[in-house]
Amino acid sequence: MHFVPNPELGNRIITLMAALVLVLQIAAVGQRWIISSIRIFAVQSFLLGAIAAVIAYFNQASHIYVVALLTVFLKAGLLPRLLERLVGRIGIRREIEPLINVPLSILVTGGLTLLGYVVAESFYHPEETSARAALGHNTLAVAIALFLIGFFTMVNRRKALTQVLGLLSLENGLLLAAISLTYGMPLVVEIGIFFDVLVAVMVLGILVFRIRETFDSMDVSKLRKLRE
């Protein structure tokens, strides 16, 4: 028998989960423990995978299941595991004070979220009242906000590893945009992107490790030999 998915319901679920993702992102900004940051990232990625699955289910777009699986497997499973191992090896657990202190950072984050909505507003076509447009509108705002907040984390954090985390959560924003706006990219592309992200994280991991070994510190704000 056929269960006809109700897109309206799907959209509600997706919007809710997207909001949750955003909350997690903001939580990550205030987070001091590296391990917790990694875990927040893992949860966030898992939620994204879930969003993908929901979209796949409600829109009967089977190839998005692949995306959902990949997301869950890679971003919620493999990558956090790798990063945690790295943390274990280099033995640094706590983030030092960010460049901008936490309360102010959270304020900035709020501003960035607002910006995300402002930007997404411009895509909103009132004449196109379909559910899909509304979904796109909402999730795009979240995606842009995720992207900007991830970026902001990278600017703000001193540790090499947290910068990598920032980069990864920034990419989560992209993923959210991709799956919610267009129901995913063509599969080949998607796989390519995942592969690239994986390699990138490995490369960055190697770099983090080497930096830790060479400089006895993971504070990248001390990497200031090359200038002018």
Binding site: L99, L115, V118, V119, E121, S122, I144, L148, F151, F152, M154, V155, N156, R158, Q163, V220, S221, L223, R224, K225, L226, R227, E228
Partner: peptide
Amino acid sequence: GSIHAYLAYIFVTLVLLLLFGV
């Protein structure tokens, strides 16, 4: 030499251009 500054340049540019694009 500060990577944070470098990232901040890009970040600020991005924010400004987003506003410009909107």
